[in-house]
């Protein structure tokens, strides 16, 4: 029960960070880290696939409604919600993630956790930025945006996930 409340609070905090802070930092065209994906990343690993996807869609919808992006965030975040088990397997490998009696993010090794975060962030932002420009005309420009934003996003999400799983969930 308490866990659900903690996740709800994390949801709200991440939405607010994204909308009020990161979208308002005018550091230039190339800086657009999408950190709300941290919520999808830090969902419990034993949570049912369908719930992961629905919560991811809900997160996307919330961001869409607040920024006026017509469905773009829903498309990208539902996709990583759906692909999470596969990406997790790719990053962690079968035995560590699923055979554990109590799957949890903090049990992952740092290297595995980092790969998992990077995969989720890159897939999400690749969909987001390509659909946003809807052209391959300025591809080098889009790729530069992707690189700058994703490095920033990965670093921020790394600390957010650490903070959430190690300091808040386990007390």
């Amino acid at each position: 029960m308490q866990k659900q409340i903690l996740y709800a609070v994390a949801f709200l905090v991440l939405v607010m960070l994204q909308i009020f802070l990161l979208d308002n930092i005018a550091l230039g065209l190339y800086f657009h880290p999408l950190i709300y994906t941290a919520f999808i990343i830090m969902l419990p690993l034993d949570l049912k696939h369908i719930w992961v996807m629905l919560l991811a869609a809900l997160m996307g919808l919330t961001i869409d409604l607040l920024t006026g992006m017509g469905g773009l965030n829903v498309i990208a975040s539902t996709a990583i919600g759906f692909m999470r088990p596969m990406l997790l397997n790719a990053a962690v490998g079968h035995n560590t993630a699923t055979d554990d009696t109590m799957p949890a993010l903090h049990r992952l090794q740092a290297k595995n956790l980092a790969w998992y975060i990077i995969l989720m962030v890159v897939v999400h932002s690749l969909l987001y930025f390509l659909l946003e420009t809807l052209s391959l005309n300025n591809l080098h420009h889009t790729l530069l945006r992707l690189a700058v934003s994703d490095i920033a996003a990965c670093v921020m999400i790394w600390y957010l996930v650490k903070l959430f799983t190690e300091k808040i969930i386990i007390k």
Binding site: M53, A57, G60, L65, G68, G70, G71, I75, T78
Partner: peptide, 24 residues
Amino acid sequence: LFILIEAIALNYYARSSFYTQAKI
């Protein structure tokens, strides 16, 4: 369900314009 959500979202995104965006 994944295909359904993505289809709805893609359809909506394809129809959205800067005008609908400003309205939202």
